[in-house]
Design a protein around this nucleic acid. Structure first.
Length: 680
DNA sequence: CGGCAACTA
């Protein structure tokens, strides 16, 4: 497996002009065979990794650190843990394999249990939030990276484990990045204290190799052969001012020239533009000459109901071309087979962070080269394919090489709180693989100080007792704080509900085609107190009908997300009971809930200006009420909000009406500086 | 006055 893959020669095309047919080259590697009838041990032996098995087992036995590089299809994620076990690593403890996503952890564990011929939860198990399928026999444990991090708070040396395999390391999720440091420190301390050594294996696609190796004590890099097929790359001849128009033209160019069985995957940025382009494609397809054949256009994004997401896996009707319009969900989370063409707009909607203001903002931006290759790779999974990049080769050369790790573009309040809870002595100098800016870390510590989670003692930042309690919730610090404050306002049951609703995907389902119906149904729950209380009303109604699914459909409520709310709430309530948080309901006196939210979310406060606009008080920047808010038509003097969303404007999402007095009592010092009424 | 990346504890 080459470290820097030989990229195919580039060809130029201009959307709208005919591109020339690609010559079919024989595949570099054999296509993966359909394997339903092949016995599982034979499948194992057919994996590219199997040829190197004895060599790998030997190396894994000797090395303390290793970086394993291999593309999807190399079999590393299922085989390496088994090799570690066969090398005797599992005898004195458990081999942990971390994954960024729940579904991956669960399905990999099932697969490996099957390969081992054991029942899931015995030798091979998994641990994800809400689910622990392990036992005292479990030696190979697949888990989400967040779960291992949580375990580390109780056991910073990770003594139950003899090896930790950090998989999908190239994705650089916040959790993985924190784990890098935690695992490295645990390894060093165990050596110093003469405890059983901890092996650390980092597994990644072909990116960041030197960085990983350097960070983990210059560890050796092992390359595994993958199963990627050749991909033909096309760039545009000239820069495209309108990537949507370019995407549309390219879809139909391919549609007119390529065999109808070749599916197309288009990478775009969000729900709205995907739905709009889907409509346009369907319209145009209707009016094409018969020689073209029909087209099935399938939108794909995370908030789509599961049944609709599954449509991308169904083959199109005979003689019909499948065109999938997707967000970056298809980059890593959902793998679709049969994709012959990828159209890459080169854009993505992603979080950005302003360290001065401490505010996260969601914005459309250019992708990185690594993402461009990831997208391209989606066309070469079973056979050779093509990718149409809707930008020039020069523009490609100017893309940043790697996506900036998430830890450098998010609010670090959670991370800092977690590090302190882990007992890291000097959080500002934590051994991050990629250090966030000192400003970002300082801003996070300031926010934690405002929340009362940390204080400075002898020039060191330490957790307060409140901070320790906050760290035991799997929540952003401000939400944990809000829960811990709620007994003061006699509304903890309500606040638990509201926080649970805020910490899952939205429970509101808004199909654009049934807009009027949807608004009418929503009106029953709407209150001028804001979105939080509207959500609370919906949850209360949902409980009243015993979580009835039919009720959910009629009221445009996403029942899957709503049941998730229930699970989260039960977990948070359990933690409250352990901490001795008094649980009581405020009944109809919902003003108490708003007052509590004001105290917990005061950093996200906004004030109505004389000209009718809003100013976010923390960063003192102009903001507006998001059209999805129940307060969109209203003009409340003061609100607290959940998050900012930057599209055509900087929008506040999920607002709660509050009194200026409440903000003042929540953080007097802070608001003496911020409030307009105190400035003039 | 106008619109919702992706994950996860």
């Amino acid at each position: 497996m080459p470290h820097d893959p030989d990229h195919p020669p580039a060809k130029k095309f201009k959307p709208g002009s005919p591109f020339f047919r690609l010559d079919k080259k024989p595949g570099m590697l054999l296509p993966r065979k359909g394997n339903a009838s092949v016995p599982i041990d034979v499948q194992r032996k057919n994996l590219p990794i199997y040829q190197a098995k004895s060599q790998l087992v030997n190396q894994l036995r000797q090395l303390h650190n290793a970086v394993l590089i291999g593309e999807t299809g190399s079999g590393k994620t299922t085989q390496i843990p088994q090799y570690l076990y066969e090398a005797g690593i599992g005898r004195q403890g458990i081999v942990a394999v971390t994954q960024p996503r729940r579904v991956a952890a669960i399905s990999l564990a099932s697969r490996v249990a099957e390969e081992k011929g054991t029942q899931l939860g015995k030798l091979v198990g998994y641990t994800v939030r809400f689910e622990d399928v392990t036992s005292s026999e479990t030696k190979l444990k697949y888990m989400t990276d967040g779960m291992l991090l949580r375990e580390a708070i109780g056991d910073p040396l990770l003594l139950r484990y003899t090896a930790v395999v950090l998989d999908e390391a190239h994705e650089r999720t916040v959790h993985t990045d924190v784990l890098f440091g935690v695992v490295k420190a645990a390894q060093r301390k165990r050596r110093e204290q003469n405890k059983i050594p901890l092996k650390v294996i980092v597994m990644s696609a072909t990116m960041d190799v030197d960085l990983f190796s350097q960070y983990f004590n210059k560890s050796p890099v092992l390359y595994l052969e993958g199963r990627q097929h050749p991909i033909q790359i096309y760039y545009t001849k000239t820069p495209q001012s309108d990537y949507l128009q370019a995407a549309l033209v390219s879809v139909f160019q391919i549609h007119q020239e390529a065999p109808v069985s070749h599916d197309i995957l288009v990478f775009m940025t969000g729900q709205e533009e995907i739905e709009a382009l889907a409509r346009t494609c369907r319209d145009i397809a209707k009016h094409l000459p018969d020689s073209c054949g029909p087209m099935t256009v399938i939108p794909l994004y995370a908030s789509l109901p599961p049944a609709q997401q599954l449509r991308v896996f169904q083959p199109a009707a005979k003689g019909c071309r499948k065109v999938i319009l997707s967000t970056n969900i298809a980059e890593t989370s959902i793998t679709i087979s049969g994709i012959k063409f990828v159209i890459d707009t080169g854009m993505v909607k992603a979080k950005r962070f302003n360290p001065e203001s401490g505010l996260e903002v969601l914005a459309v931006q250019r992708i990185s080269k690594a993402q461009a290759w990831q997208r391209a790779g989606r066309a070469g999974r079973e056979d050779s394919g093509s990718v149409y990049r809707l930008y020039t080769e020069d523009e490609f050369d100017n893309l940043i090489p790697m996506t900036v790790p998430e830890i450098q573009r998010c609010n670090l309040a959670s991370v800092m709180l977690q590090l302190l809870a882990l007992g890291v002595p000097d959080v500002m100098n934590f051994d991050f693989m990629s250090k966030p800016s000192p400003e970002a870390m300082r801003t996070a510590l300031e926010q934690l100080e405002l929340l009362g989670a940390v204080e400075e003692k002898e020039e060191k930042v330490v957790l307060t007792s409140l901070g320790k309690k906050m760290a035991s919730f799997p929540l952003e610090p401000r939400y944990a704080k809000t829960i811990l404050l709620s007994p003061d306002f006699q509304c903890s049951e309500e606040v638990l509900t509201v926080v649970s609703l805020l910490s899952v995907d939205t429970v509101l389902y808004n199909p654009p085609a049934r807009r009027e119906e949807c608004l009418a149904a929503r009106r029953k729950f709407t209150t001028s107190e804001g979105d939080h209380l509207t959500l609370l009303n919906i949850y209360r109604a949902f409980k009243k009908v015993n979580a009835n699914k039919e009720w959910c459909r009629e009221n445009f409520v996403n029942s899957r997300n709503m049941s998730m709310v229930g699970e989260v709430r039960a977990q948070l309530r359990e933690i409250c009971l352990k901490l001795g948080v008094k649980l009581e309901s405020c009944g109809a006196d919902t003003g108490r809930v708003r007052r509590c939210l004001a105290h917990g979310l005061f950093v996200n406060a906004a004030e109505l200006q004389p000209d009718g606009t809003y100013t976010a008080l923390d960063a003192h920047q102009p903001v507006a009420i998001h059209p999805s808010s129940v307060l969109f038509q209203a003009k409340p003097a003061y609100v607290v909000f959940n998050e900012l969303l930057h599209t055509s404007k900087c929008y506040m999402r999920d607002l709660c009406l509050v009194d200026a007095d409440w903000l003042m009592e929540a953080a007097p010092e802070y608001f003496r500086r911020k409030l307009r009424s105190n400035k003039s």
